[in-house]
Simulated scan of single mutants.
Amino acid sequence: MSTALIPTPGFREALAFEWTKFASLRSTVWTTATAALVTVLGAVFVGLTGSLQPDDTVLGGSLTLSVVALMAAGVVGALTVSGEYASGTIAATLAATPRRGRVLAAKATLLAGMLYGLGLAACTVAYLLGDAVLDGSYAQGEPLPALFGVAALFSAVGVLGLAIGTVVRHAAGAVAAVVAVLLLPSLFGPLLGGLRPWVAGASPTAALEKLTQTSDATPDTVGTLGPWPSLALVTAYTAVALAGAALVLRRRDV
């Protein structure tokens, strides 16, 4: 009596599995929704309170709270995998798709595509609302192609969170690590003297400040690297982190 081998699911099937799991996990859905909502509400709040600096731009002011949304994007990435470890479903996932690199690639693709679309839509709406609410005394800024760059940064930080969550596995630890990666370079940068622009300038939050053209993005705080090279740098070390996470995932039992 012969038994047929069960075929290994392809990438499209793995991607569909990941979407089903993501949509069924309330923590990731609500955190993703929060990332979009806080960006839009931040534009309205800043516009109505008139709390911008005189040298700020409409784009920078409208996206003031996008840094909170960026952290939420990283947390979504971390929860996407750590939530499976917490519930124990990761074992079933890896049993259904034995090629672990494919599982991680499917998660990363889902996150990158979803966060890009969400980030672009939320930031565009925030900018339009801010432009409508703010008076004409502020410089407009250059929303295009900056908004596409901000959306790409959301994707990169989400995938970075995924890499961190894959290595750490525990939800609380992964979330804390994501927040630390985003905030600590800026918080401790002033303690590093001449190294401050190099350390703080390499962080995702620095890239966000440059892309949104906020008045806080001065060379002595976020370095002299331009917005697009900063985005490229974040993308590069995110890719390295994801490759490292894939290696860890392959070598671990679960």
Rank of each mutant, 00 (worst) to 15 (best):
residue 188 F to A: 15
residue 12 R to K: 07
residue 177 A to H: 11
residue 14 A to F: 14
residue 229 P to D: 04
residue 23 A to G: 09
residue 137 S to A: 10
residue 238 T to H: 09
residue 254 V to L: 15
residue 98 P to K: 07
residue 64 T to A: 12
residue 17 F to A: 06
residue 58 V to R: 00
residue 32 T to H: 01
residue 133 V to S: 02
residue 243 A to G: 03
residue 124 T to A: 15
residue 211 L to T: 03
residue 110 L to R: 10
residue 56 D to P: 06
residue 200 A to D: 10
residue 66 S to C: 10
residue 46 V to S: 00
residue 56 D to T: 01
residue 75 V to A: 10
residue 228 W to E: 01
residue 16 A to Q: 06
residue 156 A to K: 07
residue 130 G to I: 06
residue 5 L to I: 14
residue 25 L to K: 13
residue 84 E to T: 10
residue 99 R to Y: 10
residue 74 G to L: 11
residue 149 G to C: 08
residue 76 V to W: 02
residue 53 Q to G: 11
residue 162 L to R: 02
residue 34 T to S: 12
residue 250 R to I: 09
residue 43 A to I: 01
residue 100 R to M: 12
residue 170 H to G: 10
residue 156 A to Y: 02
residue 60 G to I: 00
residue 112 A to N: 11
residue 81 V to M: 13
residue 56 D to F: 00
residue 19 W to Y: 15
residue 174 A to L: 00
residue 93 T to A: 14
residue 200 A to M: 08
residue 143 P to A: 06
residue 36 A to H: 00
residue 139 A to Y: 01
residue 149 G to Y: 07
residue 203 S to A: 12
residue 41 L to R: 02
residue 63 L to H: 08
residue 185 P to T: 09
residue 161 G to Y: 01
residue 226 G to W: 11
residue 174 A to F: 01
residue 67 V to C: 01
residue 141 G to I: 01
residue 101 G to S: 09
residue 230 S to P: 04
residue 252 R to D: 05
residue 4 A to V: 13
residue 145 P to M: 11
residue 97 T to Q: 14
residue 100 R to V: 11
residue 55 D to T: 15
residue 156 A to P: 09
residue 95 A to I: 11
residue 74 G to S: 12
residue 84 E to V: 10
residue 44 V to S: 12
residue 163 A to D: 01
residue 251 R to M: 06
residue 215 S to D: 03
residue 179 V to S: 04
residue 66 S to N: 14
residue 42 G to Q: 02
residue 60 G to T: 02
residue 75 V to L: 08
residue 133 V to G: 02
residue 210 K to R: 08
residue 180 A to P: 12
residue 85 Y to R: 03
residue 86 A to V: 05
residue 148 F to C: 03
residue 35 A to I: 05
residue 165 G to N: 04
residue 7 P to S: 09
residue 214 T to P: 00
residue 231 L to Q: 08
residue 10 G to A: 03
residue 39 T to K: 02
residue 99 R to M: 06
residue 91 A to M: 13
residue 52 L to M: 15
residue 22 F to S: 00
residue 31 T to K: 06
residue 177 A to N: 11
residue 107 K to T: 05
residue 40 V to L: 08
residue 197 P to E: 10
residue 251 R to K: 15
residue 253 D to H: 13
residue 227 P to E: 09
residue 200 A to Y: 03
residue 19 W to N: 06
residue 85 Y to I: 09
residue 41 L to I: 09
residue 104 L to Y: 10
residue 111 L to K: 03
residue 18 E to V: 06
residue 114 M to T: 05
residue 253 D to A: 14
residue 231 L to A: 07
residue 166 T to W: 04
residue 89 T to G: 15
residue 209 E to T: 00
residue 48 L to P: 00
residue 144 L to P: 02
residue 178 V to R: 02
residue 84 E to P: 11
residue 196 R to F: 10
residue 52 L to F: 03
residue 102 R to D: 00
residue 91 A to D: 13
residue 92 A to D: 14
residue 228 W to V: 07
residue 216 D to S: 06
residue 115 L to M: 15
residue 25 L to I: 08
residue 195 L to G: 04
residue 237 Y to W: 14
residue 248 V to F: 14
residue 93 T to R: 13
residue 74 G to P: 11
residue 92 A to M: 12
residue 146 A to F: 03
residue 33 A to V: 14
residue 194 G to K: 15
residue 8 T to L: 02
residue 101 G to V: 08
